[in-house]
Amino acid sequence: MTTPSVPQIFSRQRRFARRARHIALRRADPQAQFLRDHMAAEIVERLDFMRFTPALALVMDDAPDPLAALLAQRGSAIADMPLPDEELPYPRGGFDLIASMAQLDTVNDLPGALIHACAALAPGGLFIACLCGAGSLPALRKILLAADGERPAARIHPQIDNLAASGLMGRAGFSRQVVDSHSLTVRYRSLERMVADLRAQGLTNVLADAPPPLTRDSLARARAAFAAMADSEGRVTETFEILTLTGWR
């Protein structure tokens, strides 16, 4: 019996290249990482609410500095190990906490990634993941559709919703799993600033079938669409739907 292959929606090569770029950009401008900072605060708030202080924590992020620092302040030891490939078994386990930020929305085998995370936890360990879920980037989606005209290209990643994430958490073997979401809105004065923010935070396209670059005409249409969506102050509101997955082993 052959094992069914996992559809390759995302390019691993492009994903790892984006990761390296994000690490470099974060070092150059730590203040541009508002989404990671927001996710880090969200995870710590949940740990405080549950009164759970992990002895050993693994932070799954390109640049884990903000969350690792907050956890260390609360007395947790932070695992010193390279960022694992989420689609492979972890090189070690026994973690009391595995926290993932903006990683799981671009893995080809999300069920497998959740199974590997559960297996790497110590008994009674906790897994928390924050990612951009269904409904994220609606303004950019409209802008890119206007830019492409009658032949739209796939430029926005497929996005997972609460119901699907909850089912996957159960299949992965987590107990007491909870999946919820909330909106984070950001206002932009220009399309260039919006794109620069996504690039700086490691949120750009890593689809296996890379879309064609925007032409000069399509870029002009994108800017016109942005201007048409702007409010009285010349700003466009973009939305990130932050999906948070929580489960215990």
Rank of each mutant, 00 (worst) to 15 (best):
F10S: 02
S5R: 12
A57S: 12
V195W: 15
V107E: 04
D80I: 05
D80W: 06
I242K: 04
R15D: 13
D217N: 13
A102H: 13
A20L: 13
Q73K: 10
P213F: 15
T3W: 05
H116C: 09
H38L: 07
D148Q: 04
I160N: 00
Q201D: 04
I143H: 08
R18T: 03
R141F: 05
D105T: 03
G167N: 13
N205M: 04
A147L: 08
L203V: 00
P152I: 05
A17S: 14
I143E: 09
I9L: 15
R19G: 03
R36M: 15
P82H: 14
A222R: 00
A200W: 01
R171I: 06
D180F: 14
F226T: 01
L126M: 14
L56P: 00
R199W: 05
N162H: 14
A20P: 01
P138T: 03
G234R: 06
L83T: 10
I9V: 12
A139N: 08
L70I: 08
Y188A: 12
A55C: 09
H182Y: 14
L184W: 11
G167R: 10
H157C: 07
P111L: 12
A134T: 03
G133F: 06
A68E: 05
S166R: 15
A120F: 09
D29E: 10
A117E: 02
L184I: 14
D62F: 08
A210D: 09
F240C: 12
Q33R: 10
P158S: 02
A120S: 11
A222Q: 00
L184C: 14
T204N: 13
I160L: 15
A24M: 08
L144K: 00
G202E: 09
T3N: 08
M169F: 13
A24F: 06
I78K: 01
H157A: 11
R141S: 06
A113Q: 04
R26S: 15
F226D: 03
E87L: 08
A165F: 02
L56K: 05
R19M: 11
P4G: 15
I78E: 08
E86F: 10
Q201C: 01
P211G: 08
